[in-house]
Amino acid sequence: MIMRFLHKFSSPPYFYSISGRLLPWLTVLFLALLAYGLYGGLVTAPADYQQGDSFRIIYVHVPAAWMSMFIYVVMAVSGAIGLIWRIKLAEIVSISSAPIGASFTLLALITGSLWGKPMWGTWWVWDARLTSELILLFLYLGVIGLYSAIEDNRTASRAVAILALVGVVNIPIIHYSVEWWSSLHQGPTVTKFAKPSIHIDMLIPLLVMAGAFKVYYAIALLLRCRNELVQREQGSRWLDEILENK
């Protein structure tokens, strides 16, 4: 049942039409979540007793950092699916995720360094999390570079999938070795589900913002996938039919 649905979903014409119908809804959802999250984060959440209003950058910084890792995993998993079952759509999802993930990583780095200036008194410290985030950015750049260097799309997708899988095995090793190397970043404040060390009024907007970022990723991913699909399927009959009907 699920397999049949996935099979149907992964056929390019079906994906193209259903993603076209999904996009407006996702956009509405994204704007609603973003508005609520920003209002909650910037207006109703109380100022931090130590960091004052500067802490509010976490409403962009933390979701972006989460997304940067989440997208790498999505990229690797869909790359593996493409590699094993040769599903075109999975290859497209994998490669379309890379630039989005790289942007989120860059966003996390920039917002982090903007926050670091008033808090730590410096734009950059060679701290474990910053450094491993920077290395994550390098991994993304490698993926993008490799994809653009190989001319044939299908071959390039397979190469990228292999690289992403190697990267995903390496990320924990890199992360923990960098962690061991040095750390001054504040400990995680949200993952302790039993008793988060963050106030509930601060937490809810953060989670809403994380949701908004996820939906934004879905929107950006669908748009990029449709774009890539149109480029790859040039001259196929279903595409011509859609273009004629417009």
Binding site: I135, F138, L146, N170
Partner: peptide, 15 residues
């Protein structure tokens, strides 16, 4: 490109 692909993966060894 080779350098860009490989150097991030060398980090744990270096550390």
């Amino acid at each position: 490109l080779l350098a860009i692909l490989v150097l991030p993966l060398y980090v744990p060894v270096l550390i």
